[in-house]
């Protein structure tokens, strides 16, 4: 096992450390990504981005996350991360805390209601008295879905029961495990779901779309670095790695963050303001 560890360490050195020997002289940047999928998926999805970061900034970059949205929000607020990729409303929240805008993804965040294929629920109106599972009350999908259901007269604790799952993925499988009648998850996850599971479920409805993920920089990061990063990230899609990255993650690309975008997110940070 020790040999194996040594072998692995040597391989890692070859893969990661040797190309970045030039970066080794400076402390690494921490790049926190909000836990919108499992940690494995986070690593797998965003590894090319991290590598691009390092190449762009000529410094090592450590990708980290948090166990849940709340923790991520707290750590962001506490400044543990140098850079973050977070949900759009959380980006707005971070900006309010001093974070600097870098880029935002081209895709849009949209929730999707799914039920079991044999479910008798055919529309949102059929949800009265039903159990709806959603992930992370702080997530934008949760809030857009809650807002949409309110519009249909469905109030948590009143005529529906909202069960909070730890992740969107968990929430997606809740109907299959008979833990809920309806699950609300991200449309990106639904698309990545395996066909076998997909065949057992059916889409019920979708939430209104919301902006994609925001990449923000900690206030302690110099603007020059932020600018340089922004410049390179906007060009990331033009690289093979970037092309593959955006295809795999569904983020489609990066674009600068505009004020309207940020203003449109104001409603979704109310929950944090209420705390």
């Amino acid at each position: 096992m020790a040999d194996m560890s040594i072998f692995r360490m040597r391989w890692l050195l070859f893969i990661f450390i040797l190309p970045t020997t030039a970066l080794a002289n400076q402390p690494p940047y921490t790049f926190g990504i909000f836990p919108y999928v499992t940690t494995t998926q986070l690593i797998r999805f965003h590894k090319p981005l991290v590598e691009y970061f390092e190449a762009s900034l000529q410094r090592p970059v450590i990708l980290i996350t948090a166990p849940d949205f709340t923790t991520f929000v707290n750590r962001t607020r506490e400044g543990e991360y140098d850079f973050i990729m977070t949900a759009p409303h959380l980006g707005l929240l971070a900006e309010k805390q001093g974070y600097k805008r870098v880029v935002m993804s081209l895709h849009t965040v949209q929730g999707i209601y799914v039920v079991r294929k044999d479910s008798k629920i055919m529309s949102l109106d059929d949800l009265q008295g039903k159990v709806v599972t959603m992930a992370a009350r702080e997530a934008i999908i949760f809030q857009t879905a809650e807002h949409q259901m309110k519009q249909h007269g469905l109030i948590d604790g009143k005529n529906i029961t909202i069960d909070v799952a730890r992740t969107h993925n968990n929430a997606m499988f809740a109907p299959l495990r008979n833990e809920a009648d309806v699950a609300v998850t991200g449309i990106l996850l639904w698309r990545k779901l395996g066909q076998a599971n997909k065949d057992q479920m059916r889409e019920l409805a979708r939430t209104p779309p919301s902006p994609g993920f925001l990449v923000m920089a900690n206030p302690r990061i110099p603007d020059s670095v932020v600018d340089k990063l922004r410049y390179t990230l906007l060009d990331f899609k033009n690289t093979p790695q970037g092309e593959n990255y955006f295809r795999v993650t569904g983020l489609k690309g990066f674009k600068p963050i505009t004020d309207p975008t940020m203003e449109g997110l104001e409603p979704y940070i109310k929950i944090y303001n209420d705390k």
């Binding site: 096992m1 836990p35 986070l42 980290i64 996350t65 948090a66 166990p67 923790t71």
Partner: peptide, 27 residues
């Protein structure tokens, strides 16, 4: 012992890597 180590390491990796990635100290 080697077998046990070989068994423990993946377990630790599986159980700790994600938590470490999440910086979930309590977990």
């Amino acid at each position: 012992a080697t077998t046990q180590v070989e068994e423990v390491v993946p377990l630790l990796d599986a159980s700790l890597s994600s938590r470490l990635f999440e910086q979930d100290h309590a977990a």
